[in-house]
């Protein structure tokens, strides 16, 4: 990320001497730095304009005081019974139109929590709580796991932590092709590098600022060749003209270049928004064609009509099953929201 993309950095006074704060600030020598007491002073306040902020987000460096690692929502998982997630960062450099972060935070500024060591302690605690089980941790729930890696170094840090816990599983979910920390180390068998994919024409329209699907697939195949385990995430599934042809081409194309033995899991899930989140995102981007599709309100969620959802999930599952065993195909239907990370 170029220095010019971030020209304002707020930092909590409390962590002004933290080595990670100092090293991040050193990367933005020309940025204006503004001390704050707590990140809430400039993040999630009322009267912020997410859409305008998104055009020039500021970076906020903060300490996370609690809730470093949280239980994953129901319906979310890739085989384990114990699923947790953590986010070293809030918000994302990309701008996917279906992203739930747009409806979750009032601010588009990036918050980076610099106290990685406190995440490590929590992870250790949780793993020790379940000595006989495989516990899965998802990184990149409130952000993209790798997109700001050259600034935060979080992936490089957390991968080393998970080397110590071979029985646990870490998923790094991303759309980024900045994979230097991965290509410059020995693959870690209990880490899954999970890429979100959708047909290229949909991605061009919806995945703003992200690397193209073609480039993502290229990187996936490089990582697979290097020995990393790969997760393929078709979540959310997007409806539109010729969706079957588009998804079939995409899925066949991916499995042509990624060897089956590299694939840890494939997961997919329908596009879903909690009602209030849909309202907020629609208010932000009322001109967005995504919201002109055949969506309906079902109870507390807004989703494609039930028969469309069923048809899409059935079709994708059947297409995946031509290439990989059923045991590694997972349907994610988190209560009320697509993950879309």
């Amino acid at each position: 990320m170029g220095e010019d993309l971030i020209n304002t950095i707020y930092f909590e006074e409390d962590i002004s001497e933290h080595p990670r704060t100092l090293s991040i600030l050193a990367k933005f020598k020309t940025a204006r730095t503004i001390p704050i007491k707590r990140f809430g002073e400039v993040f999630n306040l009322r009267n912020q304009n997410f859409r305008i902020q998104k055009s020039k987000p500021a970076l906020i460096l903060a300490r996370k005081h609690s809730g470093h690692v949280l239980q994953a929502p129901g319906g979310f998982g890739i085989g384990s019974t114990e699923n947790f997630y953590f986010s070293h960062m809030y918000n994302c450099v990309y701008d996917c139109r279906y992203c739930f972060l747009q409806g979750m935070f009032a601010s588009a500024n990036y918050v980076v929590f610099v106290n990685f060591e406190d995440f490590d302690i929590q992870i250790d605690r949780i793993i020790n709580q379940y000595p006989k089980k495989t516990v899965t941790f998802f990184s990149g729930y409130d952000c993209d796991s790798l997109a700001l890696e050259n600034i935060t170094g979080f992936a490089a840090h957390i991968l080393q932590v998970f080397r110590r816990y071979p029985k646990s599983l870490l998923e790094l979910r991303t759309k980024s092709i900045q994979v230097k920390p991965l290509t410059s180390m020995e693959p870690i068998p209990n880490c899954v590098i999970a890429y979100s994919l959708m047909p290229e024409v949909m991605s061009i329209a919806l995945d703003n600022k992200t690397p193209s699907i073609e480039r993502r697939i290229k990187i996936i195949s490089i990582l697979a060749r290097q020995g990393w385990k790969i997760g393929l995430r078709f979540d959310p599934l997007i409806h539109g003209k010729d969706w079957q042809v588009l998804y079939k081409e995409l899925i066949e194309g991916v499995f042509k270049v990624i060897p089956q033995e590299s694939i840890h899991s494939v997961s997919f899930g329908p596009l879903r928004f909690p009602k209030a989140m849909h309202r907020d995102i629609f208010r932000l981007y009322p001109e967005e064609p995504l919201f002109s599709g055949p969506l309906e309100q079902r109870g507390s969620i807004v989703a494609y009509r039930q028969e469309i959802e069923n048809e899409m999930t059935r079709f994708c599952r059947q297409t995946f099953a031509k290439f990989i065993p059923d045991s590694i195909i997972f349907q994610c239907t988190p209560e009320g929201q697509s993950v879309g990370l």
Binding site: M202, G240, K241, P294
Partner: peptide, 12 residues
């Protein structure tokens, strides 16, 4: 109209 509409992502 909207219920029956299939977004043509190639044209958006």
């Amino acid at each position: 109209d909207l219920d029956e509409y299939e977004v043509d992502w190639g044209k958006t």
